[in-house]
Structures are given as C-alpha cells and as structure tokens.
Design a binder for these strands. Structure first.
Lengths: 214, 214
DNA sequence: ACATCGCTATATCGGTTCGATATACTGAAC
DNA sequence: GTTCAGTATATCGAACCGATATAGCGATGT
C-alpha cells in the first residue's frame, strides 16, 4: 500500500523520503502517522525492483553530475537568496546527503497495476489512497472502484445493524458511531458516483492510462 | 493493541481464538479485519507472560449460560491438570483441540494498565477500543480519555484546514471528507463528554478499578 | 560567545500485524 | 455420499510501527 502511495507522489515530482512523509501526512491526510521505519524500507525495495531510481542532491534534468554535499557558504548574495526562495516551495533543499527519488517507466506501470488491482478493498485507508489518485485511472475503472466500495459498505452496514445487544453504553456508542460513519461514507460515495456518471468520459480521457490497464 | 482487545474480551468470559476474532469483527466492529496471523501469536505471548492461561475444552463460568454441547465441567484445578497431562501423551485425535483462554489476575492488571496508559492516542482504532472498554475505567480516566482525543482531533482539524490547494478533485474530495469525519467525531465526543459530566460519579463507580490504576 | 532547542534528513532495530496458506473436523445440503 | 460451508488452530514471509541514533543547520536565548 505504501508503495502505491509513494509511486503516486513520485508521478508528480521527484521527492526524497522526508518530503514524501510530509506530503502523506499533511497533503493527503490519509496515512497520517506513517513512520520512517516504513518509508525508507519501502524506498529501498522500490529501488531494488527498479521502480524508482535514486540520485543524490536532486540534479536538474539532464545528466548533471552530483555536486558536493555542502553548499558554498561564500556564494553570492543573490545566489543565497535564490536558494532561500527555492527552499520555500520546492523539496529540493540542499542540506546534508539527500536521496531524491525519481519514478521510472517500470514504476509507472507498477503504479497503474497497484492502483487498479492491488490494495485491499476492505481497508478504508487503501481505498482512500486509491481514490486520491483516481485521476490516473480510466473513467470506468474509477466508477468500478467507487461502486465496489459502496457495495462493501452497504453489506457491512446490513450485517452490523442488529448486533448491538448485550453491549454496554460505551461499546454501543462506538458501534453506533461507526455505523453512522459508514452510512455517511455511502452518501458521500453516492455523490461521487453521480458526479462521475454526469461527467462525459472524453473530458478526462486524456489524463488516464486507458490502454495500459488490463 | 490486540493484547488489550483480547484481555478486554476475556474479562467477560473465557474464549478461544476463533471466537475472539468473531467478536472483534462482529460485535465491536473495530479491528474488523484482524487476522489469525495476529490473534494466535498474541494469545501465545499473553500466555507466555502469564496474563492468560489456556485450557482445553473448559467449562463456562458462573452466570454465563452456554448452549454448547455440555463438556465435562473441568473447572477444578485437578481437572485442568488432568487435561494437560492427557494432552502430553495423547495427540488429541478425535477432536481438534479447542484452546479456551482464561484471564488471570496478572492479566487483569495488565489490561488496566494498557487501558489507561498504553495505546496510541493518535490512532482511531486504538481510541475506539479503549472507549469500548471504558466501563472498566474510573470516571475521571474516562473523561480524560475523551478530552485528550477531542483535543487531538481539534488540533488536527485546525492543521488540515487550509492545505487543500493544488490537489485535484478526487484528492480534495478525500481530504474534505476526512475533515468532515473528524468534525463529526468531535461533536460525537462532545456529546459523550457532556453525558459523562452529567452522570454522578457514584453511579458507575462500582464498575471500575479505581484503586488499581496508577 | 555559545548553548540549546527545533527542524530537516536518513537509517536501523525489535516487535507486531497482515495476508496467504495448510490442515482437519463437523454438519447440512444436494 | 460427496461436495460445500463453517469452525478451529497454526505458521510463514513480508510489511509496518514506534522508538531510537545520528547529524547538519537556523533561530532563539543568555
């Protein structure tokens, strides 16, 4: 699951581990407390499987050799300011040895697979992640994802509707609140499904991998 | 976290692994898809740390009527020993050995500790579990649990309020829906807190461990 | 002047949890 | 009377978590 998340972020731009974690926590909100103990091993195994490549000190596009780890302290003032300005909104800050990862073609294929097939449908986090990256899916795969999730939640709601006997106030409150949450998830999905059906497929077709998903 | 859940269930009645999983899935709803790959190792380690004891085909406790096909009442110590001795020399051929676990005094202490101190406050599952077992907590510990969780959610909501820029429709919808869920969790907690304050402590005092929690 | 605190950044360790799979018995349906 | 679904325990490798170590750098304070 983490692999999918990382690859999805790397589809946007090259990133290093720390920044990946920050985006997972702050931007997405899902996977809020993912730890470095998960991220770095994940990056290592993605690198081993050739889905990403690591470069030290994020080099600009074309074959620039990695520069020295420390920025020159006696640089020009304008240079320093440029660095500071860049630091604000770009993850490419040069501090200490920093491994910037870039997704490969193989990685893109792996991402498409994980997004459409991989991932537990029963897990809320997994579903939310896939939906967050749904623009990389073909319209019909998107719809299918939403409907599968909806069906699962409806079933779950039906099963847990009448099992609140012999529970005390606290447990019953938890169960009830969980059920309420599920019900709201379903209405949310209904809106998404309706919006999806209302949107003509041609509009978003160019953003998807249509042909690559089997 | 699983340890706390298991001990909490065993406070009610003696159970075996399969049944523990069933209750976790169906009754509580939290920890819905916990696997046997978690439960059996957890039971083994709880047994190793003397928090629970395992008996084969144990009799139900007092006040717990059971519709099971009446096993011989092996509630006595000698009976348990006989079973254990028999298991040594017999490979349990006829029936698949059903291990029924019973919580010990040590286990009860461990449960009280896990319930009050242990468990991640940031994790929704952990919180829900603890709340589900909240009747085992002293009133002030219960209130504290609710208020801590509330404070955390308020903080989280404040932090994620303005970070929905540069996200596409799908990701933004996920983030928004997550935030809505958090907001509703807060109102839910508000109700629980109000109810908790409205209840005079003496009413539920006898159900708690008050003196055991440090 | 420098001490300390907080943030960025990578990495590893032990322990826990997941998902899949194997095994075996029972009862009901067909 | 054989297949099918449910009950029940167990194990394996991989993934994941939480804590911790290390280290450079910026700001803040005394």
């Amino acid at each position: 699951m983490l692999d999918m998340a990382i690859l999805g972020l790397l589809e946007e731009r090259d990133l290093h581990g720390y920044e990946i974690r920050r985006q997972l926590r702050d931007n997405l909100g899902i996977l809020a407390n993912v730890s470095f103990g998960s991220i770095y091993p994940a990056l290592t195994r993605l690198e081993k499987s050739r889905a990403v490549v690591a470069t030290e000190e994020s080099a600009p596009r074309d074959g620039t050799p990695s520069s020295l780890p420390a920025p020159p302290p006696t640089g020009s003032l304008s240079g320093e300011l440029a660095v500071l300005r860049a630091r604000r909104h770009s993850p490419a800050r040069s501090r200490r040895g920093k491994k910037v990862y870039r997704i490969t073609e193989l990685g893109r294929k792996l991402f498409a697979e994980l997004l459409s097939e991989g991932g537990n449908v029963e897990d809320a986090r997994s579903f939310s992640l896939r939906l967050a990256f749904a623009r990389h899916l073909a319209p019909q795969a998107r719809l299918s994802l939403l409907e599968h999730r909806r069906a699962l939640l409806v079933q779950r709601l039906a099963e847990t509707a009448d099992t609140n006997v012999d529970l005390d106030v606290y447990a019953r409150s938890v169960v009830q609140h969980t059920a309420d949450g599920v019900a709201q998830d379903i209405t949310w999905l209904d809106h998404l499904i309706a919006a999806e059906r209302a949107t003509p497929q041609s509009v978003s077709a160019e953003l998807t991998y249509e042909g690559d998903i089997r």
